[in-house]
Design a protein around this nucleic acid. Structure first.
Lengths: 379, 379
DNA sequence: CACGAAAGTTTGATCGTTCAAATTACAAGT
DNA sequence: ACTTGTAATTTGAACGATCAAACTTTCGTG
């Protein structure tokens, strides 16, 4: 192996100039078909591949998106970021982009990383996850005009800030659908287990349940509050809670839970209490939910990933758009396309009890990851 | 914001030459301390950061490691790769390296990706996961002399191939310890639920159980086989299996399971059968195991990540070593340092039954991810 | 004090690509 | 044939860093 071929080598073989080769690669439209054919043949013959770093140096673009891995593994719902990452990597590749990972210990450190990656021309844009209220990272990125999208709404006044692009899953719609499903099956006393009030995500999910309950049975907020309990995330916590809940509310018929962890705890407690046919619905459709047959609301992370890239690069673009730019692909007056809410989908399983071994879930076959096969395991 | 500062700008301010600035950055040792101080001051003053792509172009190194995300989400054990990725990203950063992700649809496609990434000088090395028997990727990487490490042994004749670096978790040791633990608690009839024979990983784990049982009770392979059942991965599968198993083997006292999925299935079946105090131990220590209080064998993925980087870059190096090179840090005749087996660790929980709400696991506080807090969830 | 070696610093060239401007080829219109 | 305009192609320069070699300073030694 002597040396990797360069544009010059290709040019020599195809009997054209450097730049023409470059054009064939980057704007094939402006090269005469005959010539293009010759160049493409030469490329194939030599097995030429562009040197990514040289291109980046010249164009000042890295074709890379930076994603920070959260510092803590995320319990039972950890696979959410995992699946998002996967979808993002896959779809980014289709647009010629790559995903680069990094970690940070705290928000200050994270901003420092942003700066290094940006200045080093390592990445063109960032995806920010786990956004907080009044997030300093958002402020920095906005002020520096670094392109970014957050997965998660900025819960606060700045929710509609023109230059903050975000994608999120519509938790409201998810639990609205879940609750409608239960109502449709004839249940009326449907409880809710949520996180402590104040978490935007949690509140929004509960609102889905609340609105559905109100529409169906005209319950007011006070009555709804009686059907609600709140707990920190975690299976054992939820379990204890449900036990006390059962003691108090004897006529409960079903539960909608803010997460699969909580739902799993609930399910175990329900089972323990010997109550059969007691539906429990979670959120996230984690592998555990699938494993134990828990109904859950599936975040469609491929759609979230697609939306992320659309916001960053336009509908079909192959490069990151400068922030605050009018985005091509935004047809006419199409509302402001600065954020996307992805509607999740209820996956129904027989989650009423742990007991019966359930039939294989043929109904789920179409749903993205739920229908996929388990693989043996990384080996 | 006019323009990002370059080495030349720093040089001008510090009143030295380009190259001296470069030296301060890359080999501070050869620069006179006085000068170095001046340069560092200038760097700080201007907020200079090296342009990664320019450096890469010149040095032909990317300081980036490519990792392929598996095409299928991995059920309940999906978090294993996730946690490995995290540890790898973190530790790579400490050595000035980055992690880049990519996906591929099949092995051929994956090799094509390798080629593009390598030729484009996008990555210096690869981490290969989910290795198969007689893996074409390994052959290609070896033939092309591309540095790589596989997470997972090459189960086959080439296990000791000199130029194939690999890291793996010692499944044997894991289930040996698990079984010893059960024996120590007085159990004698300990069953094993494994994967179908032939999967290297699965066979190795079972061997840990088998050896422990043989040492303690002198059982021969025929007798061990009677205590073994095999199933495909998956909770419902395992559950059905255990039910039939109970019918046949009435004196079973405990179970060691090849994975957490299988263990969860077993646990549910056990619970269903109304058997209390029936210990079940899994493998992977997934979040689910923690959530439902299942004992499991924890892969120490931070150690796996550390070993990965050591093989790739030497004990403390900051760049990827050419494959087949004698690796600095290999003290004297220290056996061949071309692979590492990381010993996993048993995490004991009250996994005998689903019933009692367990006390918080203070005992686990020291164990890496098991002791960490759940976070609310990505929002 | 002069000499040579080592330490410290600078200079010119280069990595492989794309940009911007210049050049040539080709077609249509008078 | 001759301009004129557009399409197609080529040329020189630049992106920001490091390498290799040349140069200058410092220091130890006979």
């Amino acid at each position: 192996m002597t040396q990797l071929p360069t544009v010059d080598d290709v040019a020599r073989v195809a009997n054209v100039s450097r730049q023409t080769v470059s054009n064939v690669l980057n704007s094939p439209g402006i090269v005469k078909p005959t010539t293009r054919g010759r160049v493409e043949a030469a490329i194939a013959e030599l097995g030429y591949r562009p040197h990514a770093s040289a291109r980046r140096l010249r164009t000042r673009q890295s074709s890379t998106i930076g994603v920070r891995l959260d510092p803590v593994t995320n319990g039972i719902s950890g696979s959410v970021l995992d699946r998002y990452l996967h979808a993002l990597t896959e779809q980014a590749a289709e647009r010629g982009m790559r995903i680069m990972l990094f970690t940070a210990n705290d928000l200050v450190d994270e901003i420092d990383q942003y700066r290094t990656l940006r200045d080093g021309a390592d990445v063109d844009a960032f995806v920010v996850t786990a956004t907080r209220h009044a997030d300093p990272r958002i402020d920095w990125l906005t002020a520096e005009r670094v392109p970014f999208v957050s997965f998660g709404r900025p819960w606060g006044a700045d929710m509609d800030a023109a230059n903050h692009l975000w994608v999120d899953v519509d938790g409201f719609a998810g639990h609205y659908e879940a609750t409608r499903h239960l109502i449709g099956r004839g249940h009326t006393r449907i409880g809710y287990i949520g996180w402590p009030a104040g978490s935007g995500t949690g509140d929004e999910r509960r609102r889905g349940w609340a609105v559905a309950m109100n529409e169906a049975f005209g319950l007011d907020e006070a009555e709804l509050e009686l059907l609600t309990t709140r707990t920190e995330e975690g299976v054992p916590e939820a379990r204890r809670l449900i036990e006390t809940m059962f003691a108090a509310e004897h006529d409960l018929e079903a539960l909608v839970c803010v997460s699969d962890s909580v739902a799993l705890g609930a399910m175990m407690a329900v089972n323990e209490a010997g109550r059969r046919s007691f539906p429990v619905i979670g959120f996230d459709n984690t592998p555990v939910a699938q494993a134990v047959g828990l109904s859950s609301v599936e975040q469609r992370l491929d759609q979230v990933a697609a939306a992320t890239l659309e916001l960053l690069m336009g509908a079909t673009g192959r490069r990151v758009l400068p922030p605050g730019e009018k985005r091509p692909g935004d047809e006419e007056g199409a509302a402001d396309m600065r954020h996307r809410l992805v509607t999740p989908k209820l996956v129904v399983r027989r989650s009423s009890h742990l007991a019966p071994v359930e039939e294989t879930e043929s109904a789920d076959a179409g749903i993205a990851p739920a229908g996929r096969h388990h693989r043996e395991e990384m080996q």
